[in-house]
Design a protein around this nucleic acid. Structure first.
Lengths: 176, 176
DNA sequence: CTGAACTTTCAGTATATACTGAAAGTATAA
DNA sequence: TTATACTTTCAGTATATACTGAAAGTTCAG
């Protein structure tokens, strides 16, 4: 085996390790495995890929690839690329880590934190005027939880809307 | 219906809304529904509860309650309470929001971020000495991802290990 | 010891979620 | 308008995950 072949093999192995493990890790964050694997594949792919290439690389069905590609585009993590003279769509991942981070933070906020906050607020409001130790304690818990979540989410959102070059030094100074 | 009865009914309704919705929300964060519901129930319960009371309140089986209580104790979100003259165990949730937050951040770090970082580092190392544009680009991606995740996790960890009274003002100043 | 009070385990089952692949749909070039 | 190249949909199926409940295990008072 030549050196070039060894390099290619080693690179392929590392790529596969990343793709497969990224899928496992994402599952713990409420993202489905295939979606994470497609994202990982495109993240480490030098060129944009089309549906058939992804099907082949990950050994999964057309329907599955299609659904998850749309979902990733919906998240704003992929861009559609068209090549002249070709009808099919290629997909390309955003590769700048800071941008990926900001996109994910903002989407999760919108999809998950905002609805959670609405529930907390509703529970706090409904019990605001009730008398009695039990009711007051419950109201207090809902209010505290709501305030805290709102503050934390606000901070994250602020970070995700900043420019990396402006916010990172501040964070570094803060945590020393 | 008396005013007291109305208050009691309204409070019960708000409690149930919180418990059921908290379960749904948690599912989006990779925490199972029942575990989240048990945690929610204990969060809004004035007194510690025992297995049978939780079974009755949430209409779930003994095995299920037992498993999820142990899991929650493992996370450090519940304390076991023993009452004199009684053999059975009661469970009580930590109610201070800041402490809950710190506990969750630290546990997720340990369980999910650290393993993820290990994979990124491994992938970066394995490809560090390979030649060629492809290999170098892959290596760069892994290195950037790893550095970013390590930084972000470090910042979160720092926050979660601080005292609330010290860190919150800093965060407020930062995000203005 | 023995039995009562309580906890844990786990095989079997239910439920939710993800995936397949073929058929239907759409757009374009000739 | 028809053939071709591609995308989308979705009923059916597979897989993973959660849950049940009864049996086995543990602890302790008497």
């Amino acid at each position: 085996m030549t050196t070039t072949e060894q390099t290619a093999a080693e690179l392929r192995a590392a790529r596969e390790r990343f793709i497969s493990q990224w899928g496992v890790i994402s599952a713990a964050w409420g993202i489905n495995r295939t979606m994470a694997q497609i994202h990982a594949l495109l993240l480490v792919s030098a060129e944009p890929l089309a549906t058939d290439e992804i099907m082949a690389a990950l050994q999964i069905s057309r329907g599955n690839v299609n659904t998850n590609l749309r979902e990733l585009v919906g998240w704003g993590l992929l861009r559609v690329v068209l090549r002249k003279g070709e009808r099919r769509e290629y997909f390309e991942a955003e590769k700048e880590v800071w941008k990926i981070f900001c996109t994910i933070v903002r989407e999760r906020q919108r999809r998950e934190i905002d609805p959670a906050l609405a529930v907390l607020r509703e529970c706090a409001e409904r019990t605001a005027k009730l008398k009695g130790a039990e009711a007051e304690e419950f109201h207090g818990t809902m209010r505290d939880l709501g305030q805290f979540v709102a503050q934390a989410a606000g901070a994250m959102d602020k970070v995700a809307r900043s420019e990396r070059s402006k916010i990172m030094p501040l964070i570094f100074k803060m945590i020393k």
